[in-house]
């Protein structure tokens, strides 16, 4: 049988999107009352839940804490039921550890950590359903959770993935497109200042194509920013209405 046609002649992808279109985004803030901040985000079929605690006292050894800055502690885990085949080891495997490290790097760049020396901010992200773009959904969910917790941030962090197929740059890859084996770029962007917090590329890509792919990812992040902004403002309005201000 022929393989799946990821990009048709008319420019439609497998699920009917065009090359630069994002998947449907749904997000809710403040879903978890117990935590300082929480958010639930769905990007297509990828569902991520982020929970933030902090800033609170340093747990663990004080030796690891950076001087005069808050310690950002991230943990990324995937539920055993999140993938098509049940995952055996949800925590502690290499991929999760790498993702956690990436999240930590991303948020250390975005949070104003100098305001909270000698304290710790915990970010826990759990992927409930994985359908491509796991890291990006995790970053977006964590951003919303941090906003919900009221921890001062420099700017939103919007993340999106991009790929390259048949001379066209695709934005927001789903699982089938990622598994096809082409180059994948994950970009975490601070949209206002256009600062890149994290850029990750795996598989080889010729230098000539890089600007186009980067461009597609940047555009996608900007669209995401607009969507997340809308969610946040609605949440603020609802919260204010609830408190009767």
């Amino acid at each position: 049988m022929a393989g799946l046609e990821l990009l048709s002649e008319q420019g439609f992808r497998l699920d009917g999107r065009r090359a630069g279109e994002l998947r449907q985004l749904r997000a809710r803030m403040g879903v978890f009352a117990q935590a300082d901040g929480s958010a639930y985000l769905e990007q297509g079929n990828t569902k991520a839940l982020a929970v933030v605690y902090g800033p609170h006292e340093l747990r663990g050894s004080r030796g690891k804490a950076p001087h005069a800055q808050a310690l950002v502690n991230c943990q990324y885990s995937m539920a055993t039921f999140s993938t098509a085949e049940r995952k055996r080891r949800p925590h502690g495997d290499r991929a999760s550890a790498e993702m956690s490290l990436h999240l930590k790097q991303t948020f250390e760049a975005a949070l104003l950590t100098r305001l909270f020396p000698r304290s710790q901010i915990d970010i826990y992200v759990q992927i409930l359903q994985a359908d491509g773009g796991n890291y990006c959904a995790a970053v977006n969910a964590a951003t919303l959770a941090l906003l919900d917790a009221g921890i001062p941030m420099r700017d939103y962090v919007c993340a999106c993935s991009a790929g390259f197929l048949e001379d066209t740059a695709l934005a927001d890859l789903n699982y089938v497109e990622e598994a096809a084996g082409g180059p994948q770029l994950a970009l975490a962007l601070l949209p206002q200042a256009q600062h890149i917090a994290l850029l990750e590329l795996n598989a080889r890509l010729h230098q000539d194509h890089l600007p186009r792919v980067l461009d597609a990812a940047t555009q996608a992040c900007r669209h995401l920013h607009a969507l997340l902004d809308r969610v946040v403002r609605e949440h603020l309005r609802d919260a204010a209405a609830l408190l009767g201000k």
């Binding site: 497998l14 699920d15 009917g16 998947r23 297509g44 079929n45 359908d131």
Partner: peptide
């Protein structure tokens, strides 16, 4: 046997 769930956008 695997269950495949895919999105399908209608334009």
């Amino acid at each position: 046997v695997r269950k495949i769930v895919r999105e399908h956008y209608l334009r």
